Amino acid sequence: ADFLSNDDYAVYVRENIQVGMMVRCCRAYEEVCEGDVGKVIKLDRDGLHDLNVQCDWQQKGGTYWVRYIHVELIGY
């Protein structure tokens, strides 16, 4: 899907992401590398560009918070 802005994409992720879902990092962020796959373990839905998504990352080996714009949804 094509999104006009980071805000549009962040809204899409916020409306669709669920705890337990698998996500792929589509934009490297601090300790999380692009392409790493993680399981969503906690969500904080306050802002669009806060650290909203806590995942247990496979490559990184452990949990880390990222923003909506850092992840793509790959289902369960």
Rank of each mutant, 00 (worst) to 15 (best):
R24W: 02
E72P: 00
G62D: 10
K42G: 13
D2Q: 07
H70Y: 03
F3Q: 12
D2M: 15
I41K: 02
Y9V: 04
V19K: 04
A10G: 08
Y68S: 12
C55D: 03
R27Q: 15
Y29C: 14
Q18Y: 15
C26T: 10
G61P: 09
G75H: 15
N6E: 15
R67M: 03
V32T: 00
D8I: 11
L43Q: 00
V13G: 04
I69N: 08
W65D: 01
E15W: 03
C25G: 01
Q18W: 04
S5Y: 06
L4C: 12
E31W: 07
V37E: 06
D8F: 08
E30Y: 04
V19S: 09
A10Q: 06
V11I: 12
A28D: 10
V32G: 00
E72R: 07
W65N: 10
A1G: 13
Y9M: 05
Y64W: 04
N16G: 05
V40A: 00
W65R: 11
S5A: 12
G61M: 05
I41R: 08
D56M: 14
G38K: 03
D36V: 02
E31D: 12
F3C: 10
G38N: 02
G61F: 04
E31C: 10
V40K: 03
G61Y: 05
D7W: 08
A10R: 05
D56R: 12
Y9A: 07
V32P: 00
Y76W: 13
G61T: 10
Q58A: 07
L51C: 05
E34W: 08
W57F: 08
D46I: 03
L73Y: 02
H70M: 03
W65H: 04
C55H: 02
R27L: 08
Q59E: 15
Y9N: 05
C33I: 09
D56G: 01
G61I: 00
D7Q: 07
L51H: 06
M22P: 07
L51M: 05
C33Q: 15
W65S: 09
L48V: 10
I41M: 13
K42T: 13
G62T: 05
G62N: 15
E34R: 05
V13R: 01
I69A: 14
D44N: 11
Q58C: 05
Y68M: 04
F3W: 06
G61Q: 08
R24S: 10
Y12S: 10
Q59H: 07
K39R: 13
W65G: 05
G47D: 07
T63L: 13
Y9H: 14
D7H: 06
G20N: 05
N52K: 12
M22A: 10
K42H: 06
I74G: 14
Y9T: 09
R67G: 13
G61A: 04
C25S: 02
W65Q: 03
E34P: 05
R45Q: 07
G75C: 08
R67A: 11
Y64D: 03
C25A: 06
H49T: 12
G62P: 00
I69R: 11
Y12Q: 09
V37L: 12
V71E: 03
T63A: 09
I69C: 06
Q18E: 07
C33M: 13
Y76C: 15
D2R: 12
K42F: 15
V37F: 12
N16A: 09
Y9K: 06
A10P: 03
V32H: 03
K39T: 09
G47Q: 10
G38E: 00
V40I: 07
Y12C: 06
R24I: 03
N52M: 11
V53I: 09
I69S: 14
E15Y: 02
V23D: 00
Y9R: 09
R14C: 08
E31K: 10
E72T: 12
G35M: 02
E34C: 03
G20M: 04
G61S: 07
G75S: 12
R14Q: 15
D2A: 07
D46G: 14
V40Y: 00
G61W: 01
W65V: 05
D46M: 13
V71P: 03
W57R: 01
Q18G: 09
R45W: 12
N52P: 05
M21G: 05
Q59S: 11
V66E: 00
Y68A: 10
G35T: 12
D7N: 11
Q58L: 06
T63M: 13
S5W: 05
E30Q: 13
N52Q: 09
I74F: 07
G47S: 12
H70D: 14
L51S: 05
I17V: 08
Y9Q: 08
Y68T: 05
D7R: 12
L48T: 12
C55L: 01
I41P: 03
R67I: 02
K42V: 08
V23W: 03
M22C: 00
R67K: 11
E15G: 08
D8P: 02
Y64H: 10
H70K: 04
R45N: 08
Y29E: 00
L48D: 15
C55T: 11
E31Q: 13
W57D: 00
G35P: 04
E31P: 11
Q59G: 15
E31L: 09
Y29L: 06
G47P: 12
E72F: 02
C25P: 02
G62F: 15
A10S: 07
E31Y: 07
G61D: 07
H49I: 00
D50A: 14
R45F: 11
N52A: 06
Y76N: 15
M22N: 10
A10W: 12
Q58F: 07
G47E: 11
M21A: 13
Y12K: 06
V23Q: 14
A10L: 07
V71W: 00
K60H: 07
Y64E: 10
Q59Y: 09
G62A: 11
R24N: 09
W65M: 03
G20H: 03
A28W: 04
V71K: 02
H49N: 15
L51W: 15
D36G: 01
A10T: 09
R67W: 01
K39C: 05
V71F: 02
C26N: 07
R27P: 06
M22K: 15
V19Q: 01
C26W: 04
C26G: 07
G35D: 06
D44M: 13
N16M: 09
N52Y: 14
E31H: 08
N6A: 15
Y12L: 11
D36H: 05
K42C: 08
K39Y: 04
D46P: 09
L48Y: 04
V66T: 12
R67N: 10
K60C: 09
D8M: 06
V40F: 00
V40G: 01
R14P: 01
Q18L: 05
K39A: 07
Y68E: 06
Y29H: 14
C33A: 12
E31G: 13
D44C: 09
G38C: 01
I17C: 05
L4S: 13
H49W: 06
T63P: 07
Y12F: 02
N52G: 07
N6R: 14
D8R: 09
V37S: 07
S5K: 13
T63E: 09
V71C: 13
W57S: 00
V11H: 13
A28Y: 08
E30T: 02
N52S: 12
I74E: 12
L48S: 11
C55S: 01
R24P: 02
V66C: 04
Q18S: 12
R14M: 10
R14T: 02
I74K: 04
D36W: 09
V19R: 02
M21E: 06
V71M: 02
V53L: 05
G62C: 08
D7M: 08
E15M: 08
G75R: 14
D46L: 13
V32E: 00
G35A: 00
V23E: 00
R45G: 12
V32I: 07
